[in-house]
Design a protein around this nucleic acid. Structure first.
Lengths: 113, 113
DNA sequence: ACTTTACATAACTAATCAGTTATATTAGGT
DNA sequence: ACCTAATATAACTGATTAGTTATGTAAAGT
């Protein structure tokens, strides 16, 4: 009987724990991109990249939309909004000593979108 | 030829991707604790908890010191200082829209310890 | 209608992971 | 010296993961 939040945290952090997926996210900071574009920098098959993209989407870290035969990916705040409150719980524990993290989390809690 | 930073990010995020390990970190926000204490809330063997603790330590999320026959664990900022700069790169991409995250990361970059 | 582009899905494999039980180690107490 | 408490290590197992190749599908172009 695990709750959604916990499972979502699992997925979000796990998605971030892979260098290929982090590289994809960084590439997406440059804007929307299709699967082929995202796959280009890697010496890896297209299906492998497609799966990384699925993992990122399931974690709420990216969104996808169709445009013709393309599937354009872009960053999504959802996944990040999921992990930051949790990180802030830890940050609080560090107290003043670590309040930089605390501040970051507070600002994320303000939350846009 | 992967660099340390990348491997460290892998370890840090992967360590956070498990509910038991996150629960251990939360428990440590209450202060130092030995392995037995940390294991108590879980229906899990002691060796299993010991391994989770090792994963957290390898990720730089906790520190350990010996006191008699006990091994006291406490939160460590290292692992968090590792992931926040990376998160801030992503946060920058969101721009003003997501600048709460951006702010958090900026504050973490200030960094104590 | 046919081809091509862009992607998704399936079936398989090797490696890693999370847990188990059993056993070793290490420090303190008596 | 011996016993116990607290933890670590080893050997094993089942599940998940990341990659592969081969094949399927869906929208555009000709």
């Amino acid at each position: 009987m695990e709750n959604q939040t916990t499972a979502m945290l699992d997925r979000s952090f796990a998605a971030l724990a892979d260098p290929t997926r982090r590289a994809i996210l960084l590439q997406l900071t440059q804007g929307e991109a299709g699967v082929m574009e995202l796959a280009a920098p890697f010496e890896m098959s297209q299906p492998a990249v497609t799966r990384h993209i699925k993992v990122l989407a399931d974690a709420g870290l990216i969104k996808r939309r169709s445009q013709g035969t393309k599937r354009l990916c872009s960053l999504s705040s959802e996944g990040f909004e999921n992990i930051t409150p949790w990180l802030s719980m830890i940050a609080d524990a560090y107290g003043a000593k670590y309040n930089q993290l605390d501040a970051l989390l507070a600002r994320m809690a303000d939350g846009p979108t």
